[in-house]
Design a protein around this nucleic acid. Structure first.
Length: 277
DNA sequence: AGTGTATCCTGCAGGC
DNA sequence: TGCCTGCAGGATACAC
């Protein structure tokens, strides 16, 4: 559910208030969202102070005193919200009582999300396994083209693989491919430098504007204060099967592969490499 | 090594 | 109204 723009919005919302706060108490209501025994999780975090609030890909990365890192992956329906009445938490799984202000609650209907407390060194290893941040300066069109040349899986699947690029999920993969005029099943290996450049631009534009709109809320996503994002009305293909393409009025197609739905315009995104688009 | 598939879980929309 | 089916923004264990 939450992809880079949603996680970024949550992190920005948490940062000013959470930094400097101490975890006084931890209540685990659903242990299956933890990647370690609840006793171990709590022992590592209790009494620690939040030093920084960051994002890496779709992960919320909370650096604590004592060299401990709390990593939160929201899965499909996870939320990290302030326990205020207006942010109604329906399925609280973990509750962090802080030394001041409202508690911080991890809420997750489907419980696909995961929380883990680990050492800095362990986090460094995990971090290494993730691909480049698409909005950072190290993510260049040249690098993208080189990375694409080594893969034969469909480009939409490639974009969802967090080891290739970090933070892209099904919504923004489909949106960026439409903007770039590239069919979701195109082979990355077959892409020209020009296509890689288009895709690079499209990814960055799509993600940046979604961050500006505070993320896409289809159903579940909320920011740290419990508010939905504003980006849903800006989607061009995702969830718009059978509706007209906003660019050429052709009907948007819906196609399932890799266990996920792909949406694309057959005219703007021809399967035969896109010189006619 | 790199890919595709099945699975974790709950809720909701649509068909009958 | 109620039952059933299919679908959902993610990650990963496994088979090939």
């Amino acid at each position: 559910m939450p992809e880079l723009p949603e996680v970024e919005t949550i992190v920005r919302g948490l940062r000013p208030t959470l930094t400097g706060k101490t975890i006084e108490r931890i209540r685990v209501l659903h242990r299956d969202v933890l990647r370690q025994p609840p006793r171990d999780f709590s022992a590592r975090l209790r009494g620690r102070i939040f030093e920084s609030v960051d994002r890496r890909g779709k992960n919320i990365v909370l650096h604590m005193t004592g060299g401990v890192v709390l990593v939160v992956n929201l899965g499909m329906t996870g939320r990290l919200v302030w326990a205020r009445p207006e942010a109604r938490t329906t399925h609280p799984a973990v509750r962090f009582t802080l030394n001041a202000g409202p508690a911080l609650v991890y809420d997750d209907v489907r419980r696909f999300g995961r929380l883990e407390a680990m050492e800095e060194a362990e986090w460094a290893l995990r971090d290494q396994r993730l691909g480049p941040e698409p909005l950072s300066s190290t993510f260049t069109a040249r690098r993208l083209h080189a990375d694409l040349s080594r893969s034969i899986s469909p480009i939409r699947s490639w974009l969802l693989d967090q080891r290739r690029v970090a933070g892209v999920g099904n919504i923004y993969a489909n949106e960026a491919l439409h903007l770039a005029g590239i069919h979701p099943q195109r082979s990355p290996k077959s892409m020209t430098e020009g296509e890689a450049r288009k895709l690079h631009r499209a990814l960055r534009r799509t993600l940046r504007s979604a961050v500006e709109n505070r993320g896409t809320t289809l159903r579940d996503y909320r920011d740290a204060s419990g508010n939905p994002g504003e980006n849903a009305s800006r989607l061009r293909v995702y969830g718009r099967g059978q509706e007209p393409c906003l660019r050429c009025s052709t009907r948007i197609c819906r196609l399932v592969f890799g266990n996920r739905a792909a949406f694309y315009c057959p005219r703007c995104q021809p399967f035969e490499s896109g010189t006619t688009a």
